[in-house]
Design a protein around this nucleic acid. Sequence first.
DNA 1: CCTATAGCCTGACGGC
DNA 2: TGCCGTCAGGCTATAG
Length: 265
Amino acid sequence: MPELPDVEVFKQYLDATSLHQRIADVDVRAERLLWDVSPQRLKDTLQGRSFEATRRHGKYLFVELSGDGWLMLHFGMSGSLKYFKDMEDDEKYDRLLFTFDNGYHLAYVSPRKLGRVGILENVDKFIGEKALGPDALASDFDLATFRKVLEGKRSMAKSTLMNQSVIAGIGNIYSDEILFQAGIHPRITLDKLDEAALKRLYDAMREVLHMGIERQANPERFPRDYILPRRDEGEKCPLCGGEVQKVKVSGRTGYYCPCRQRSNP
DNA sequence: CCTATAGCCTGACGGC
DNA sequence: TGCCGTCAGGCTATAG
């Protein structure tokens, strides 16, 4: 589930539970999740240290370690964090387990093992190497910058929003909502969007992502006029009551409603 | 530059 | 119940 709002919620969760405690042990149950680090080196790096602060960029969460260095967490298509005490709550998908001196554990949960965890010296260097675009909610990511990163692009609106090298943090689900709120068809190419449409897209991006975080990335709490909880065949558009339409973009399935999102603006 | 596709994993769901 | 295909809130490599 992890797009920007979900990862931001994980960040807040980790901040509230797992900072400033000495790490007693690290258990790696799925080695393939490790990015450029062996289980032994991960363990050696973390043991005796503590998590001190966190930082998020797009769908990546970075945890600063005491001493120096960072733990990098990416959650793939499924994945989350779980803080608990009793080992009876340790479950099948808890692929990495960090145990603190106070006896509590933080699990990196990853049912499908599509995420990645690594150790970094320098977060900005990592972001540069991955060629990530600006974080969609960064405070300095204003409308002018938004226009600049989209300048000259001829890709489809939905593909562009989901392209992490252009803007970091938006995935399949939230891109649908942003386009719906902006009234933009998912397959329209950017060169067809005028200034007003670009502003609507920017405003919708900020608003939808902020809303997602406010509601703890829980679709059940989303506003009634959102299409996000209705992304399914046969579901009705919250605005016109018509049936939502399905589109394939970038190999992903998107949903939209033609009542506001016209392919020919 | 841009699109589409397959593969990585595991499980849920629908059809027969 | 069992088997099979399809699909999934991500990303990468590859081909056209």
